[in-house]
Write a protein that binds this DNA or RNA. Sequence first.
DNA 1: TTTAACCTATGATAATTGTCATGTTTTAGT
DNA 2: ACTAAAACATGACAATTATCATAGGTTAAA
Lengths: 225, 225
Amino acid sequence: MSKCEQCIIKQFNSLKSLGKDDLIRISGCKTSRFVSKGEVIFSEGESINGIYCIKDGVCKLSKLSSNGKDQIVKLVVRGDLIGQRSLVSEEKSNLTAIALNNMEVCFIPKNEVLFDLSKNPKFSFDMLQEMAKELRVSDNVIVDMAQKSVKQRLADVLIYLHENFEKDEMGFLKVVLSREDYANLVGTATESAIRILSQFKKSGLISTTGKHVKVEDLDGLRRIE
Amino acid sequence: MSKCEQCIIKQFNSLKSLGKDDLIRISGCKTSRFVSKGEVIFSEGESINGIYCIKDGVCKLSKLSSNGKDQIVKLVVRGDLIGQRSLVSEEKSNLTAIALNNMEVCFIPKNEVLFDLSKNPKFSFDMLQEMAKELRVSDNVIVDMAQKSVKQRLADVLIYLHENFEKDEMGFLKVVLSREDYANLVGTATESAIRILSQFKKSGLISTTGKHVKVEDLDGLRRIE
DNA sequence: TTTAACCTATGATAATTGTCATGTTTTAGT
DNA sequence: ACTAAAACATGACAATTATCATAGGTTAAA
């Protein structure tokens, strides 16, 4: 099994603030796991008892709303940590994590992380910074959900995917989302998402082949209102 | 000026995790200030350079959306801290804080807080916990904004106010929000908020006298869908 | 290879929400 | 108490979005 102290992934998250000794200690406790597409990593209401470091792949974090629909709250990619919130607040997970790709994830037990949080102010501060950033993003999402139209939100999602996710040689997004996933990202009915995507395709803003999507006209998407 | 080490307000926030010495040190640097209703405490885009501890009163944290409307992201009450996020992330504020009451707030300069964060793991951890809680709440808000109807969201706001804010002898909420504030809390047009509030009043779910609102039928509001 | 399950697509229609217009009431300042 | 400004209220209508129905297309397992 590969070693945390040599893992390049940690550059992208708070684990970079740990010293070599701590990383070696964590490396001895961590478990690594492959998760296949569609598999549930953890569910709403479960105790997670540790944090996951995403070594490869993409997953969606979603929450079931009272009307029975799933809302995708965040997409999590290579380098991200998940589970810190539940770890710190000692509560069960409020989100469900489902793989959108085949993934590789490392699991670090709760106590190891809590130990470092109690001993290493640099690590704590880094984690605090990450959470502060997440909160800022959340605020923006709240405002967008409350104030933008479904069409705008869907355009935003496409822009976000285009700017932050890997693409193949043809420029198609490597992440493959169902129309239902798109709907659950923007908080609308699946049919509405399908309709708007069709419309974007007709307007030449995107192209699609099956579930594969390519952004063709970024500025055009930006101009949607 | 009153002293932090004797202030009971700190029980409600992370400052409770500081030792007496640190509180005395902070007390020497802090400034106290009265803010009258409607006054802006800080604006989106400003550098805050410290945190505010709300000693008394209520304020709204809002953000201007791209369509020019304000979205209220959070209501902040006695005991809450504001400004931690910008402090930790070294960024300008992404929110505007406006008093809804006459308020009294204490301002603690950035460096004092950063000093404690670097020296006091208990304080850091407490702050981390607070942020984790805020993130959880944000997730819930995102889901609600995305999935619930305007009517449901407005009912939720009324329930939230009823359960978390002070009421007078008659049961009316002491906080007085304009219809526009209600609209900006739920993310809808002012006219829509007005209409729905009128409807709630007609149905006996709430009663209103001018801007003063009283929840009459909590379960009724909970049943709104 | 067939079949069933699921996803995508689209029309028709209803429900929700926003916008504009207009009048009334309340509030704050003199 | 008076007046101007702001906030509230409501109707009429338009735009957006959800829901229901139906059908074609894809995919994966038997």
